[in-house]
Amino acid sequence: MFIIFGTRGIKHTVSESPVLSNSCPNCNDGNLVNKLYRRWFTLFFIPVIPLDTVDRFYECDRCKSAYNESIKTVLQRSQEEISENQKRATSVYAKALVASMTHMSVVDGNFAPEEEREIMDAIEGFPEMKDELMAIHKNVKVNANKDNQVFDFLNSARSELSSEALINILAQAAVVLLADGAIEKEEETLMKEYLIACGLPKEMYQTLIDKLKQKDMTEIKKEQLN
């Protein structure tokens, strides 16, 4: 009788290792499952005794792409970078928003209670930054655009944010412009300067105003119906 023995590698799933959901860099949708190759002693081609671990890696359960275990660290770092970028963008957005709204409210020399309420509502939308935004608001309220501070905030926003985000900032500034029911010449000129600072055509000014007026009329009609 011949006894046939030898060794061969068998792939196993590491059950105690968490699956990295929807993380495959190749197909984007696949889950990365932690695997290991273990060498087994075989008898008559049947695995009998586990020997050493040859390799550990992650394998996509969809496209079967394989990655070194370091992929987990790379993916975690990427998520941290994404989170940090989002946090920075939110900060830049909020600062530019409050600075421009406050500047718009004081440019005509008449800081109306309606304008103050709009700015406070905007600040409340960023509770984690409230103290910092209140400081910006008070500074711009007293010093306006001293040392070009408001336009510095807008320039930072232009370099960090999308055009859509910039338009949202200016739309909010336009809400302040309309809050007291009248548009002064200084406010109109300033809004056009904001558009240019954000890399947007100043002709967009009238489009912004028309849309906001239309929105206000729609809300008034809804209130009347209710």
Results as ranks from 00 to 15, higher is better:
Phe151Pro: 00
Lys64Gly: 01
Phe41Lys: 00
Asp55Ser: 08
Val176Ala: 06
Glu193Tyr: 05
Ala173His: 05
Gln79Leu: 13
Glu223Met: 00
Asp180Met: 03
Glu80Cys: 14
Ile169Met: 07
Cys63Gly: 12
Pro25Ala: 02
Asp152Glu: 12
Thr13Met: 02
Cys198Thr: 12
Leu161Lys: 06
Tyr194Leu: 04
Asp52Lys: 02
Arg77Ala: 14
Phe111Pro: 13
Gln172Met: 15
Ile3Arg: 03
Thr13Ser: 08
Arg77Met: 12
Phe45Arg: 05
Glu128Asp: 10
Val54Lys: 11
Pro47Lys: 01
Phe151Gln: 01
Thr102Pro: 15
Lys141Phe: 03
Ala197Cys: 13
Asn34Trp: 04
Thr102Lys: 08
Ile119Tyr: 10
Ile123Asp: 09
Leu200Arg: 10
Ala165Thr: 13
Ala122Cys: 15
Glu59Cys: 15
Asp61Gln: 07
Lys35Met: 00
Asn68Leu: 09
Phe111Ser: 08
Cys198Val: 09
Ala171Arg: 14
Ser105Gly: 10
Ser83Arg: 15
Glu69Met: 11
Lys192Leu: 02
Pro50Arg: 01
Ile167Ser: 13
Ala174Asn: 10
Glu115Ile: 10
Ser159Val: 08
Cys27Thr: 04
Pro201Met: 03
Ile123Gln: 12
Leu20Tyr: 06
Leu225Asp: 06
Asp152Ser: 11
Glu124Leu: 08
Phe5Pro: 00
Asp131Pro: 04
Asp147Lys: 15
Ala89Gly: 07
Ala174Pro: 01
Pro18His: 02
Glu187Met: 05
Phe41Gln: 01
Met134Cys: 11
Met134Trp: 07
Glu80His: 11
Ala174Gln: 03
Glu160Asp: 13
Glu69Ile: 10
Val74Lys: 09
Asp61Ile: 10
Ser70Glu: 13
Leu178Ala: 02
Val14Met: 06
Glu114Thr: 02
Arg158Val: 04
Leu200Val: 09
Thr218Tyr: 14
Lys221Val: 12
Thr42Gly: 07
Gln79Phe: 09
Ser17Lys: 05
Val107Phe: 08
Pro113Ile: 03
Glu116Asn: 10
Asn28Glu: 11
Val107His: 05
Lys72Trp: 06
Thr73Ala: 13
Asn28His: 09
Leu32Tyr: 10
Lys141Val: 04
Tyr205Leu: 06
His137Asp: 04
Ile46Arg: 11
Ala197Arg: 04
Ile46Asn: 09
Glu132Tyr: 07
Val48Lys: 07
Leu212Trp: 01
Cys27Met: 04
Ala66Arg: 14
Met1Arg: 05
Ile123Trp: 03
Ala157Val: 02
Gln214Tyr: 04
Lys35Thr: 15
Glu115Ser: 08
Arg39Cys: 03
His103Phe: 13
Pro201Ile: 01
Ser83Met: 15
Leu208Glu: 04
Ser70Gly: 03
Gln224Ala: 11
